[in-house]
Design a protein around this nucleic acid. Structure first.
Length: 105
DNA sequence: CTCGTGACGGTAT
DNA sequence: TATACCGCCACGA
């Protein structure tokens, strides 16, 4: 239980640093949170967020530059619309282009 | 304690 | 590009 308190809290802090109009991948967040190779835990941490959170969970996407929800889900369309309202642009494949990542080599 | 699950990622085929 | 595997690990049954 305290395990969740420690690592999840750091994950939330890192996610909150992603500026509006930009996105980051689960893997990038994991590394910045000191949990390299544990991208799944980032997704798990976000899954546990309450609905009225200040953490910008919508700015976290997968390594393929796409939203990690089924294409036909409500969650998917909701995340996409929020990102678009923040200025994030999607291409015809519903993926986000490189320049919009805050951290990318 | 064991097992299945999952908002992931990298590599192989 | 698409699938299949495997590594990763907190959680809950």
């Amino acid at each position: 239980m305290s395990r969740r308190k420690d690592s999840y809290r750091i994950i939330y802090e890192v996610v909150r640093k992603i500026p509006s109009g930009k996105v980051a991948t689960y893997g990038q967040i994991a590394r910045l949170a000191g949990l390299p190779g544990q991208a799944r835990q980032v997704g798990y941490a976000l899954h546990y967020l309450p609905s009225q959170t200040k953490v910008p969970w919508q700015r976290v996407i997968n390594s393929r530059g796409r939203i990690s929800f089924p294409l036909d889900s409500v969650a998917w369309s909701m995340q996409k619309s929020i990102l678009e309202s923040e200025g994030v642009q999607f291409d015809e494949s519903d993926s986000i282009s490189l320049p919009q990542y805050q951290w990318k080599s």
